[in-house]
Design a protein around this nucleic acid. Structure first.
Lengths: 258, 258
DNA sequence: AGAGCTAGGTAACAACGTGTAACGCGATGC
DNA sequence: GCATCGCGTTACACGTTGTTACCTAGCTCT
């Protein structure tokens, strides 16, 4: 009788967003992703159209920050193509004010655009505005086309919600474990803070309201998942610890269709 | 270690599909709704545009099966209007092949159409196809619409997932109980068979594969929900038993916006 | 290098949630 | 009226999940 609802997909889950930062300048990417992550979102870097596409295949993306200048690729064109194929929210980023006119005239279909260099707060405001406006899939749980994830011999069928080991043995995961795995699979190589994971799983660490908050629930959960999917839980190969940060899924994940 | 996934709310809730069957012929409605329910969906009957609208107001609708001939109303026209207002997937049903041409020529915006009389399996295939194709817009509709259900003094906030008794006391429901309540609230006055409920909740009654199948899980669950929401569980006012059939939520449910 | 501190691993525990089995009762049918 | 069936209900067994406590690995500072 402790569970008082309000923990499926309240406004909390809303706040965890997966943003694809597309820029060919490494420094710029770094700066933007870091800033976005500090503000409670999951930011994924991409440098080219092909990277964008593989990210879109691989996991849920809530918003794309797309630079107009992408080396020899054309951001505007990419934007238009993406928009025709699926309706991911897109914010264009450009250094030239001339681009703005082109964007408005051209029907590239961006949700917003912002001039570089920009005030970080402004960026955040725009991002929030677009995300709020286009509040689509809120739950971090894939709602994408992706049906099957493959990593290092393992196979996770998101649709049937079944996971098989490299030897073909089905492994039983609890609900929490499954959700955790989904979060990890959606963010390979990206260190996730405990808090991020907690938000995604909608765990609030019970009495956690003030300072330190957030008990060891995540740690325990990670441990339990490790026991099930790691050959040697003591020396994890996939679900690695990022000391002082959180956890990373340190393996390439291939996302297939059904 | 018995639970082999494939039963998590995330995807399961997704799989509860609410289909609005619009036809002015009672027999036809009956036949279609019954068939759809037997196949794991929640089918709601409607005979006129006004009924369609009240259903759309009242709850999440994933798909509309709309007959072209609706007495003195024009199904095509209704389809076009609905499409302009919101993007609910619509499958048109017509008895006249001439209608097909009109549909194609006319931009009514239906997702598909099917000729009457039709093979039930074909109907199901079309329904599934459209639902799969428009998965995202379905969830969008869900979010946009109904947020709060009110019945007989009770108040259920679907978004926050909280339920309050007439005296304003919050009642804690377990996940299953919550899902059951959602199913019931979405189908007021409609007797639901155990099997339907089981499908919606994704309970398969464990070893239930052969003959009788489906244990008493639903009964027990109903009992537990009654204890929490009925004043006198022995003499239920909302969650009534339909002997030999299943259960009904025998109270008017008002669906409000947030 | 060693003391001390901190973060993370993990075992044990407790509180639930939830399906199953069993018993009993009231309704239905002959 | 008796047998049967459907349903309500309780007791129980098990899995899940958060919490606590204790321990160890790693880092820091001197």
């Amino acid at each position: 009788m402790k569970k008082f609802g309000a923990e499926h997909e309240g406004d909390k889950t809303m706040s965890i967003r997966r943003i694809l930062v597309v820029d060919d300048d490494p420094d710029m990417r770094q700066m933007m992703t870091q800033f976005l992550r500090q503000n409670g979102t999951i930011a994924l870097p991409a440098a080219s159209e092909s990277e964008v596409r593989s990210q879109l295949e691989g996991g849920r993306i809530d918003l794309i920050l797309l630079d107009v200048m992408l080396g020899d690729e054309n951001g505007l064109e990419i934007c238009r193509k993406l928009r025709q194929e699926q309706d991911v929210p897109i914010i264009m980023v450009s250094a030239l004010s001339a681009d703005h006119q082109r964007m408005e005239g051209y029907s590239v279909g961006a949700d917003d655009y912002i001039a570089k260099p920009f005030n970080p707060e402004l960026l955040l405001a725009r991002v929030k505005a677009v995300l709020t406006r286009t509040r689509r899939s809120a739950s971090l749980v894939h709602r994408r086309n992706t049906k099957i994830f493959v990593f290092s011999g393992w196979r996770y069928d998101a649709k049937a919600d079944q996971i098989f080991s490299p030897t073909g043995v089905q492994v039983a995961l609890s609900r929490r474990e499954t959700t955790l795995l989904q979060v990890l699979l959606a963010n390979p190589h990206i260190p996730l803070k405990r808090e991020e994971i907690a938000v995604a799983l909608d765990v609030t660490g019970e009495t956690s309201q003030s300072s330190d908050a957030l008990g060891r629930a995540i740690d325990v959960l990670v441990g339990r998942l490790r026991i099930k999917i790691e050959v040697n839980p003591k020396d994890p190969q996939f679900l690695k610890t990022e000391r002082g940060v959180g956890y990373v899924f340190a393996v390439d994940v291939e996302a297939k269709e059904a």
